[in-house]
Structure formats: structure tokens, C-alpha cells
Design a protein around this nucleic acid. Structure first.
Lengths: 203, 203
DNA sequence: GTCTGATTTGACCATCTGGTCAAAGCTACG
DNA sequence: CGTAGCTTTGACCAGATGGTCAAATCAGAC
């Protein structure tokens, strides 16, 4: 029987500050590239103080990832079997693009993890993520069977949405280097909307 | 006047082994996540011996990147103004996807760099890369003006090709976790071919 | 106000890591 | 062979880094 104490105000504030600082640092430098000192400084705490709240660098990273993964799938979950197929898909694309715009650090944290072989979240990928994708792929396929959207490979369709939308967060520097001042998020929504309309509307 | 000696056979062999080992290690762990010892071990050399060939970890990384960047743009360069527009674009997509399949480490090396803010290749992005993309975007636009392909945002079109193709290298773990045994490179070409045909062919 | 437990910190440690160096071993050419 | 220069290595160093700890400080319940 472990006694679970209610967190104090200070605990709540500091834990939040730490996670935010860690998100900043981990997403910009990767797990190994980030240092505990950096995170502590960004959170406005001394290193030992930070380690009073999380027992190790690893623990911070874990907390961050599990918080992220929990909400990462929400937009896909929201794809509604009862809705109008094309509109559901376009809404998903729009939402995902907004996440790239509003939460680029989260996207990059995830990208860092996957690019380097997903050492810490492989379990999540093959369980929760796969299950959800399987479910939604089946839904897409049923819509195709009913002739409500064009027939394409449902898994690649989902991959394409992830890739096209996350690109604007993960490769932000490159995109902006090339657009040279223009805000990608002004023009991307229309481009993607058009792309998926053309792809999924029968000729 | 520095005397430039012709590299010996041993030099050629070892430099090549080092670059290959470094590609393996850097692409899997990022710059800071990689250690010189790891690279030396992977190249079958002792650490001091490795540092005899490249003066620092930084130097190895630089050599690797400059070798990569040199060839990275070739497929885009090959898009021929004299060719049939849709075929040229589809050929570019196909070539880029083959690169993801055949050179995933190079793609991930690049991805690591960009995701973390491109600290070492920002110059390349804003000069060489931007120049080439500007040129090809203009070409795409002229094809649109002539009504030979549908009108879409040319820069986003190029971004979409990068994102969709590199996704299969950079997010390989995730893709395979979800496809569960199926080889993505069997089915992706047809999906992408279809996608760009539908996007770029006027209704 | 006082006391208890929560919070904070300076000093410290072991390990890792990039890099150096002098000496030893090797290769190839005359 | 012999030797000049290329290659390899064990030993070593300084700084960075993750983490510990005992002591000091602080917040809030009574």
C-alpha cells in the first residue's frame, strides 16, 4: 500500500515547467544531445532540484513521451464512421496540419524518436498505434467498398497524411529556407485539401 | 604551396570504411548521440587511428554531409524541361522513392540534421537547394501555364514529393510496425504514381 | 510562532567522451 | 637490405555529463 500524496502547488508548477523545458530541449537536440543541465536551466531550476522531481533524464523523457503519445492519436480517433467520408478525411488532414503548426516541438520529439529507430516507443507503435490504424484502415476500406471515395491503398493513404502534414513541423527549417519569408501554413491547407479531393474523388 | 600527395591504397580503404561506419552511426544516433569510439569500432579501427584520418568527429560529419549533399539533388536536377511534364514528375517521384529504399541511412542522416534545426547545413539550404528548387518551381509553373499539368502550388508540390518519399526511409520503423511484415516498397510506388496522376491530370 | 515535511542547493563523484602524443610497427622504393 | 615516411597503438588528459548527498532553507498546518 503506497500512500499517494496529493501534489503540492510547487510540485505541480515545477513538474510542468520541467516537462515544458524538456520538450524544448529534447525536441531540438534529441535524447542524447540534450543535457540535464540544459533542461534544468530552461526550467529555471538547479540540476539537483530538477532531479528531485524526476529521478533521471530517462524518466523525464519517458514522462514527456507518454504524455505526448496519449494525445497524439486523438485526431485520427476523431475520424467518424458516421460522417461524410471525404469530409472526415479532409478534416483529419486539416487538424493534423494545425497540430504541426501549433505543436511543432511535439512533432519533432516524435520524429527524433522514430528516425533513430524508436528504441523507447516500439511497443506503442506495434500495439496502440497499429490497432488504431488497422481500425481506421478498415473504415476507409469500407467507404471505398461503398464507392464513397476512390479506391487507394488505405495504409499508404494514412501514411501520406502523416508525412505531408508532419513535414511542415519536422522539416520546418528547410521549408522556410526555400519559401524565404512566405508562411507555409498560409498556403499548405489549400494545397492539401485540393490534393486529397483529387485523390479521393472518382473521376 | 601545399604539396597535395596522392592518397595511398590504405588511405583510400580506411577513409571509405570510416565514412561508411560514420554514416551508419550518425544516421542512427544523430551527431551528438554518436561517439567516436562507436564509429571507430564500426570501421574496424582504433580511435586514435581514426583520428589520424579525420582530425575530429566534426570533420567526419562534415565530409559525410558534403558527400551526401552533392548527390542528394541529382534526381531533382534530372527533371527535364524538354520532357513530357507528367512523366518527368512521376519519374522524379519514382527515383526519389528508390533512393529511400536503397539509401535509407543517407535519408536519415539528412533528416536528423534538419529536424534539429539544420545547424550545419543551413547555408546549403538557402543557397544551392533554394536555387535549384526555385528553378524547378519555375519550370513546373511554366508547364501549368501551358496547361500541360493541373495548377497547384509548385513549391508545395515539391515539398510533397520529398515528404511522401523520404517518409518511407525516415519513418521506416513506424511504417513497418504498422504494415507488419508487408514490404512498403512493394505497394508505395503504385500509390504515389496514382496520387500524382490524379493530382496533376486535369479533370 | 513552531514544528514537520517539502524544497533547494553547493560540493562532490564516477564515468564517458573527444582528442593528444610519443613510440612502435609497417610498406615500398631504391 | 635499409631507410624514409606512412600507419597504428597504448597511455593519457581535460572537460562534460548524469547523478548523489548532507545540509540549509522554506511553506504551511496547528
Amino acid at each position: 500500500m503506497t500512500k499517494t500524496r496529493r501534489p503540492t502547488r510547487i510540485q505541480a508548477r515545477n513538474r510542468a515547467a520541467i516537462l515544458d523545458a524538456a520538450l524544448e530541449v529534447f525536441s531540438a537536440h534529441g535524447f542524447r544531445g540534450a543535457t540535464v543541465d540544459q533542461i534544468a536551466a530552461a526550467a529555471g531550476l538547479s540540476k539537483p532540484n530538477l532531479l528531485y522531481y524526476y529521478p533521471s533524464k530517462e524518466a523525464i523523457h519517458e514522462a514527456l513521451l507518454s504524455r505526448l503519445l496519449d494525445t497524439w492519436l486523438d485526431p485520427l480517433r476523431a475520424m467518424d464512421p458516421a460522417g461524410e467520408p471525404l469530409e472526415e478525411i479532409l478534416a483529419y488532414v486539416r487538424r493534423k496540419l494545425e497540430m504541426s503548426r501549433d505543436y511543432p516541438r511535439e512533432s519533432r520529439l516524435f520524429a527524433n524518436e522514430i528516425v533513430q529507430g524508436a528504441p523507447r516507443i516500439l511497443g506503442f507503435l506495434t500495439s496502440d498505434l497499429k490497432a488504431l490504424v488497422d481500425e481506421k484502415a478498415a473504415l476507409l476500406e469500407s467507404w471505398m467498398d461503398e464507392g464513397r471515395i476512390a479506391r487507394v491503398h488505405p495504409y499508404h493513404l494514412i501514411f501520406s497524411i502523416w508525412s505531408l502534414t508532419q513535414h511542415y513541423a519536422d522539416f520546418d527549417v528547410q521549408v522556410r529556407a526555400i519559401l524565404d519569408g512566405d508562411d507555409p501554413f498560409e498556403t499548405a491547407p489549400a494545397f492539401l485539401d485540393n490534393l486529397y479531393r483529387r485523390l479521393l474523388t472518382s473521376a
